[in-house]
């Protein structure tokens, strides 16, 4: 086992307003260097909230409450904000939010946008030539032409903008890239290119690890080594990607995997799928005990009262599940 790149311990964050809504309610996991970790779940389960909290840049209204996020030697909620901004963000850990292609400045050329980013992160004022040299190499790596640097965002397609953002966020070869739903706004053919590009970035050692957030488990499957399944603000299962799909343990994961409409390349029509009855609970008022018990077909009385711990299974390596069914 290589050394830990990211340690998240009992992380909690909430949205303020008329109610306090805990989008992330006690999440613990580790990520080792060189690993591609998937973060899967349905919409509203808190996966983007978790990614935002780990990135150290929660948007207004989302607040960090407690817990630890450690990237390399930096405990990002304990260190000075200025240090976080100039040393950790972009250099060790880069965060590409959902719909990040809209974060390019519409009235600036891409190259000027990169100037801003570099100035902000290094507090130096490099010349335009240096920037072009630095950026051109990264742009060709993600499959973009050097000319793109001189264009405005509206001249680029969605896929190109997304590539440009990824190239910009990997300018300093960060160890960890947190990428939130990079494929969901794209057409299927661009989705495959995007996944291939992420794979190549890792292969060329530009980035070492990826935290890939997506609701599309079939896409995650193509890239990830390990996967976290989130439900209602908590992680319910972690394990190797193949194990999660082939032998899911948590009743929620089982339901989720069996409800995915998947394409059969041999042309035979897929078997009839099952769906999980009921709807996701309201996060303002999550159910007591196990959060999945109102929809769980195997729920016991115990599940309704006590929250299950994350259980490590003796017979299965690297496969943890938060469910009372596995407590011996």
């Amino acid at each position: 086992m290589s050394k830990n790149l990211l340690i998240v311990e009992d992380l909690r964050g909430y949205y303020t307003g008329a109610f306090q809504v805990y989008g992330v309610d006690g999440v613990t996991f580790n990520m080792s260097e060189g690993e591609i970790l998937g973060l899967a779940g349905e919409s509203g389960c808190g996966k983007s909230t978790l990614a935002e909290l780990i990135s150290g840049a929660p948007r207004p209204l989302l607040l960090y409450e407690s817990g630890r996020v450690q990237v390399h030697e930096y405990d990002i909620y304990q260190i000075d904000e200025e240090l976080l901004r100039t040393e950790v963000k972009c250099k060790i850990m880069s965060y590409v939010p959902q719909a990040s292609m809209e974060s390019l400045n519409p009235v600036k050329r891409i190259i000027d946008f990169i100037m801003d980013v570099v100035r902000e992160r290094t507090r130096k004022k490099p010349s335009k030539k240096e920037i072009i040299n630095l950026a051109a190499e990264h742009f060709t790596r993600v499959g973009l032409d050097k000319d793109v640097l001189k264009r405005y965002p509206h001249e680029l397609s969605g896929g190109m903008k997304q590539r440009a953002v990824i190239a910009i966020s990997t300018l300093w070869n960060p160890s960890l890239l947190i990428i939130d739903e990079p494929t969901s706004a794209l057409d299927v053919t661009s989705q495959k290119q995007m996944i291939k590009m992420l794979y190549d970035l890792k292969k060329e050692q530009i980035i070492k690890s990826i935290l890939f957030v997506s609701h599309d488990i079939a896409s995650l499957r193509q890239l990830c080594d390990r996967c976290l399944i989130m439900y209602c603000g908590v992680v319910v299962e972690t394990g190797k990607m193949d194990d999660i799909i082939n032998e899911p343990l948590h009743p929620y994961t089982q339901g989720l995997v069996s409800s995915i409409v998947s394409f059969n390349p041999d042309g035979t029509r897929p078997a009839v799928l099952r769906s999980i009855p009921g709807d996701q609970p309201d996060l303002r008022n999550p159910p007591p005990g196990c959060r999945f018990h109102p929809r769980c077909l195997q729920a016991m009385t115990h599940c309704k009262k006590f929250e299950p711990p994350m259980l490590q299974l003796p017979d299965k390596k690297d496969h943890d599940v938060k469910c009372w069914l596995f407590k011996k």
Binding site: K196, S219, Q222, I245, S262, N264, P265
Partner: peptide, 26 residues
């Protein structure tokens, strides 16, 4: 159409669809 696509576009399209039970060779 899905088992034996004829048109090059359909072939490219179907080739890009992720399959839950197998991995692409990237």
């Amino acid at each position: 159409v899905f088992g034996h696509p004829q048109h090059p576009y359909t072939q490219a399209l179907l080739d890009s669809v992720p399959d839950l039970h197998s991995r692409w060779e990237l």
